[in-house]
Amino acid sequence: MIISIASGKGGTGKTTVAASLASIIPESVYLDCDVEEPNGHLLLKPEFNSEERVEKNLPEINRDKCTFCGKCLEVCEFNALINLGSEIILFEEMCHSCGACVHFCPSKIITEISKEIGIIRKGIADGNVLFVDGVLNIGEVSVPPLIKEVKKNIVESKLNIIDSPPGTSCSMLEAVRESDFCILVTESTPFGLNDLKLAVDVLKTIKVPFGVVINKYAKSFIQMEKYLFNNGIEVLLKIEFDRRFAEAYSEGILPLNKYPELKAGFIELHQKIMKKMEIEKIG
């Protein structure tokens, strides 16, 4: 079972919600897929016990044997290669490692070398939560491949919680696809609402069931409730706007650990989702 936490807008509280859920669900698996800026470890403070390199392939052209025929450029849809006449240059950040240039080179002089794009760290948090995160190397842009690697650590027999990157494009898609349920975390502002709508459109397109958590909830922002009501979207949890929660977070403390009154809300959130999943299964 996979529950992903996403948002569209950044900074609404994805990581807080994901880490809080992980901390109240014994034996859960927490996977931080926000590999550009992974923050889950700052809240869950896992003890890391392993680290592995993730690599991608890049073409390497044997200069001495190259005839500069230009076939590799022709088959590269990403314009990652340019022909200088005396040398063919690769723009690494444009390369998707598809292997087409290697295959179609008539002289068969392109080989592949591997290059590290980031690391995957694993550890244990709160005694029994399996913690996994991906950390993208600085300057690297191969985000979806690294997310894919993080997701290979999903444990099917357990409850997996995926912390998605913000946004609504490739990296968010890679993180939330194949989830059984997605929690969209939003906030009571026009920005929060605008980006929530975008994220809802994505989830509807990829057919992942979802519900909403409103963080930094302000009653006065009624447009949020109007939209949710009119579109039949369930609000799973509201977390009041409270400076104390922000202060706890700023120190790397999960607000529910300092303010136990929040705990009940997350336990209820977990139960609601499990119930929804059961109905989904029967349906």
């Binding site: 950044g10 900074g11 926000d34 550009e36 800026e37 950040e93 993208l136 600085i138 842009v141 985000v143 990157p165 913000p166 946004g167 494009s169 990296s171």
Partner: peptide, 10 residues
């Protein structure tokens, strides 16, 4: 700009 440090930021 966008959040993160990936391709849209670059």
């Amino acid at each position: 700009g966008p959040p993160g440090i990936g391709c849209p930021v670059n």
